[in-house]
Design a protein around this nucleic acid. Structure first.
Lengths: 337, 337
DNA sequence: CTGTTAGCGCCTTCAT
DNA sequence: ATGAAGGCGCTAACAG
């Protein structure tokens, strides 16, 4: 690590003290313009790069944030990272990425590690298993800035950035009802997740408004492997009470649904209508008969990053203790046909 | 940053010296079992976390690698990150992620920064613009381990992990020829990129073997915006010499091609056959008439990570100065119809 | 088996 | 406007 030149050597080269050089490099006002010039030129010439670890140790800040997400092969997170990275690069911050793979134990291990002060702030979207949140409250209580995005933790009093999940759930369900569905199935990956609860609440409300009873046997919680999800959905479609509409509350379950329909020869949307939450950039390649709720993933990422840097740099904690809700978009492809 | 307890305080609590505590925590053989036990319990109780920056400064190693990629909304990189992260987590390394957005200047800036010694090793896939590579040779000459994956730099003598691009290009072209194509167009994003050159070489060889002349007006280099790519492909499909087969050498151009065909009402594969390099996890959602070359993205990521950690930890430089080539898979969906 | 000491490279008060 | 000195928290060489 670090084969380059250090401050002391640079100072020696210039016949100056390390403090003068350090100040010159930081553009301190108490250094003459000519000295600054000389220092900068030599630094450039020797391609001096300050040791970030020495600097972090001294200043007690690392210019680094942690990004903790459940999965990456999911277009929502991919787009969010793009937004986060854009802001981080602009602000000269570094981004450490941690994947929990929807595993609460990994999340706990990461949270524990983050107690070390490796980062100045944390951007997190919790796992679908996260019910106990002691690891997060502990982390939060150390004073490190945390911003939740998408999959938030309502109990922790910090900034949160989400989609309008209740409204999206309502809109999606309404869309299916308008399309003539009576027997609507609801697919989710968790019962505890913030987004699941809100989307489901919107779903129930939309049914209620139209006096359609909620059928609990049509509500599927698919938390296991892709294989078992596949089986569960297959059983659903083969059951005597086969749904005429399916609300896939996450992208992954929409894909599985499509695969099952493919295998069973069930035509979408002729035999069953499907609406899904999805942020696939490849929308045009999708079967045009799948309607979609698209989240503003990129903007959520950008916003989350902006908020965390604001908290870190301006201690804007209080004003940040609010939830920012960005609107989703419903793309109806049924009507296109 | 770092509100927790430090070594000194922990040592004071235990009435031991910091060195003893440090050694106990590192499971040194010269510490009695009982002391280790005592230390570990107290550390756990006070949830002591060593300051990573102090440790990195002292040990001159950071247990951190940099991952530098051109874009993230591309399934190849998404899957590769998954593989990289899996190995990094297993090895207790941290991953800093940097996106170049296909911008050579960003790549240069990042390379320059990495001179600082922030990371112990670098995993990089270069931009489509990377022709001058001084920034990379400079970086490499400092002695920091670098592993190229997918988009490699042939001129730099270090480990490289790629797909069998020449062979894939050959296979893909052969597939189109077998399907009856005579007028095959080739779409690429760069002429300098390692993968482009190799895929194109395979393309040419496949044509040559069947005595099909290469038509230069059917070779499109789309390096600009999505909009201009769209126009270029549209012009190609409207030209008098309209291709009956299209080789989309990257995922993005396949998607654009599909969009253009959609707009022009050109049926795939009836009017034009398309084969693309793509790693979309949502293959079943794709139009079944698009054939695909799928790369072992996850395995490439894993392998790249394994190699870099091997170099870092065992100075296995020489043996690592080789190119690992993993095989791609051709998924033919034309025949499925 | 345990303690003392000396830095890693940087920033920053304090002195000049 | 510049320099000297101390310490961020940790590890490792050197003592005992």
């Amino acid at each position: 690590m670090d084969m380059g030149i250090n401050l002391k050597q640079l100072a020696a080269e210039l016949k100056l003290s390390t403090s003068t050089v350090s100040r010159a490099l930081h553009d301190s006002h108490e250094i003459s313009t000519e000295t600054k010039q000389r220092v900068r030129e030599m630094a450039e010439k020797l391609s001096y790069q300050p040791n970030p670890y020495a600097s972090s140790l001294r200043k007690q800040k690392s210019k680094t944030i942690a990004l903790v997400i459940p999965e990456i092969d999911n277009n929502f997170f991919t787009l969010a990272i793009n937004g986060i990275e854009e802001i981080a690069q602009k602000k000269n911050y570094h981004v450490l990425i941690y994947l929990t793979h929807e595993d609460i134990n990994k999340e706990i291990a990461i949270a524990k590690h983050l107690l070390s002060g490796r980062v100045d702030g944390i951007l997190i979207s919790v796992t679908s298993q996260t019910a106990e949140i002691e690891h997060l409250t502990t982390l939060y209580s150390t004073g490190i800035p945390i911003v939740f995005f998408d999959r938030i933790c309502d109990q922790i009093d910090t900034a949160k950035i989400t989609t309008d999940d209740y409204d999206s759930g309502f809109k999606a369900t309404h869309h299916l009802i308008e399309a003539g569905c009576k027997n609507i199935a609801y697919l989710q990956v968790s019962e505890t997740l913030s987004i699941s609860k809100k989307r489901f609440a919107g779903f129930k409300e939309a049914l209620h408004k139209k006096n359609i009873p909620l059928q609990t046997d049509l509500v599927l919680t698919c938390a296991e492997s892709n294989e078992s999800n596949y089986e569960q959905i297959k059983n659903l479609l083969l059951s005597k009470n086969r749904p005429d509409g399916i609300f896939a509350s996450v992208e992954k379950l929409a894909i599985t649904t499509y695969e099952v329909c493919n295998e069973l020869g069930i035509k979408i949307p002729d035999q069953v209508k499907v609406i899904s939450f999805s942020n696939l950039a490849t929308a045009p390649l999708l079967n045009p008969s799948l309607s979609t709720i698209t989240q503003p993933a990129f903007d959520i990422g950008k916003k989350a990053a902006e908020v965390i840097f604001n908290i870190i740099e301006h201690r804007a904690v209080e004003e940040a203790k609010e939830t920012t809700i960005l609107k989703s978009t419903l793309i109806s492809r049924d009507s296109t046909k």
